[in-house]
């Protein structure tokens, strides 16, 4: 039964509409810091994808930087785990 269902996947229901894509692109656009501020003008999908790539790269760099700084803490600080988590959850 399941194999039959997977075989008929081409027809109808799985078709992607332009509306679906536009909706997803605008959701993506709302997550971008620069584009969110001037949302009045609607950007092309290509532009949104380009900005998305740049933004993900900047987020990756930030995680890289934070990892480096946290790894430096490993050698000296010996913070208690419970205390740390408690303070994070409280926020």
């Amino acid at each position: 039964m399941s194999s039959r269902r997977s075989r008929s996947r081409h027809s109808g229901s799985s078709r992607i509409t332009d509306d679906q894509i536009n909706d997803l692109v605008s959701k993506l656009q709302q997550l971008l810091p620069e584009m969110h501020s001037r949302r009045s003008d609607k950007k092309s999908a290509t532009k949104v994808l380009q900005e998305t790539c740049n933004y993900i790269r900047s987020l990756h760099r930030e995680v890289d930087d934070l990892s480096e700084r946290l790894s430096e803490l490993l050698e000296n600080a010996d913070t208690t785990q419970a205390d740390l988590i408690r303070s994070l959850i409280m926020q």
Partner: peptide, 19 residues
């Protein structure tokens, strides 16, 4: 994925400040 990266950065910054 972007929202998760944002959350990840926030938590890691908090840990760093706390430590």
């Amino acid at each position: 994925y972007i929202r998760c990266l944002q959350a990840q950065i926030q938590v890691m910054t908090d840990i760093l400040h706390h430590s």
